[in-house]
Design a protein around this nucleic acid. Structure first.
Lengths: 106, 106
DNA sequence: CACTTGCGAAACCGATTAGTTGCACATATA
DNA sequence: TATATGTGCAACTAATCGGTTTCGCAAGTG
């Protein structure tokens, strides 16, 4: 199933999972200890993260290590990029000047 | 009401609205023409975007112009930033080397 | 072999979501 | 003033979400 990355990172628990896994690959059980939920709930989050390829599995016996895969995060970065310069202060100030000019023209 | 930015940008229609508004401030009616939904549906999206301050209103008579406010987008940028270098190829290659070293050690 | 451990899948549940229709209200306009 | 226009809000609905409990199964372990 194809899943939207933006929807995947909308959930705070999933963002926390990403934060943990990015540091070190972990099993579902190890992950679940960091949250106040069942292992099955974490497993469902991991499935969603896997579906949009933010995470990949590495089987090791009966354990499954989940690795973070940053590639899919590019999509989010690409979305934000056009807005980046807008919040950098020097440009913001220019924006304000233009905005005020437009208002006084009305 | 306080609203999560990540949840706000999870919806593709809202991302499209942001894309349009970022180019030029628009009224709900003008926005609705770009989508296959009712004006009221767009209005609800605008309310959610306003609640997390991704958008601000400018009253002009009976019309309301919605402006894009990039500041809240910083939160998303901050979340992504730690992962940025991970997908830049030179670092990826180093990661792969380390990953293979770890595997052969097992 | 019996037993434990690690995991995903299925079924269920309350809450939330994105959409609709219908309405009320303020602002322009004839 | 009567009418048209631009808007937000409320009520409703089908679908989805995030969680739980229960189960089945494969992989280790005594």
């Amino acid at each position: 199933m194809r899943r939207d990355v933006f929807q995947a990172i909308a959930d705070p628990t999933r963002r926390a999972i990403i934060g943990l896994i990015a540091l070190q690959a972990m099993t579902p059980n190890a992950l679940a200890e960091h949250f106040d939920t069942t292992r099955q709930a974490v497993s469902k989050h991991l499935r969603i993260l896997t579906e949009c390829q933010l995470v990949k599995q590495e089987q090791a016996g009966r354990e499954i290590y989940y690795h973070f895969n940053p590639d899919s995060m590019k999509e989010v970065a690409d979305f934000i990029e056009p807005f980046r310069r807008m919040w950098e202060s020097k440009f913001r100030q220019l924006d304000n000047v233009l905005s005020n000019m437009k208002k006084s023209k009305k």
